[in-house]
């Protein structure tokens, strides 16, 4: 890898995007599809879980908080292995025939992202609850409604939480390469494609793909932050 390759990578990245290369578009599409689906599922699980842990006082609450924070640093490869053993033919859910499919990749990324969503939203909701708790008690808000209301009122902070989750999902390679198998035209995503090009020694092309991934991540973040800024002017202060 030399300086020449480095600049070459930017040119390649620009060429790839401008040419709307069909293979590349397919890979980007699958990356987004897998990571966004994982993010949606993780959010459906993680937000209520985080809110419950942030609002309710129960024995072992501190332990759960520590556990959720610890799970945030779960290495993707470990998650990949766990999901592999779950969906392998010799595993308990082998009969579902999900190994080496996009669905298995979604499951792996969901396992990876849910702790992040839960742990970070617990923090957000706990802070909000500090402000709301007494007023909500005064209103006699039922527990379920309280969780709902706080998730809604914290929605713009939670958007940032979701972005953190998305970032983790779209960027990880360790889990999806094990459970997806990096199969061409089927389970190949941006990160596994980058790993493949690296192992082919085509470092400039690998970096070009990396640049494209970075651009996608930037666009998603910019779009969400733009939405957040606009929305905050309307309903939030």
């Amino acid at each position: 890898m030399h300086v020449h390759d480095f600049f070459q990578a930017f040119r390649l990245a620009a060429d790839l995007v401008l040419a709307a290369d069909a293979d590349l578009m397919e890979i980007i599409g699958l990356s987004l599809r897998v990571s966004l689906t994982a993010l949606v599922i993780s959010s459906l699980i993680g937000f209520p879980l985080g809110a419950a842990a942030g609002i309710w006082r129960f024995p072992g609450r501190g332990l759960i908080a520590i556990l959720m924070n610890a799970l945030m640093s779960l290495p993707p490869v470990v998650v990949g292995l766990l999901v592999y053993f779950t969906f392998s033919r010799v595993g308990p859910f082998g009969w579902l025939e999900l190994l080496y499919t996009p669905t298995a990749m979604i499951v792996a990324q969901t396992v990876l992202v849910t702790p992040i969503i839960a742990a970070l939203s617990r923090q957000v909701i706990e802070d909000l609850n500090r402000e709301y708790a007494e007023q909500f008690r005064s209103f006699s808000v039922p527990p379920g409604a309280a969780i709902q209301a706080m998730l809604w009122d914290a929605r713009y902070s939670l958007l940032t939480v979701a972005l953190a989750g998305f970032g983790r999902a779209i960027a990880e390679v360790g889990a999806v390469i094990i459970v997806g198998g990096n199969i061409n035209h089927y389970t190949r995503v941006m990160t596994t494609a980058i790993a493949l090009e690296t192992s082919k020694g085509d470092l400039a092309f690998a970096l070009a793909l990396g640049i494209v991934l970075l651009v996608i991540a930037l666009s998603v973040n910019a779009a969400v932050m733009g939405l957040r800024a606009t929305a905050m002017r309307y309903a939030y202060a």
């Binding site: 699958l30 599809r33 966004l36 689906t37 949606v40 499919t101 996009p102 669905t103 979604i106």
Partner: peptide
């Protein structure tokens, strides 16, 4: 959501 669900169906 529709797009995501579509993708899952195609996949299998």
């Amino acid at each position: 959501m529709l797009w995501l669900a579509q993708g899952m169906q195609n996949a299998n």
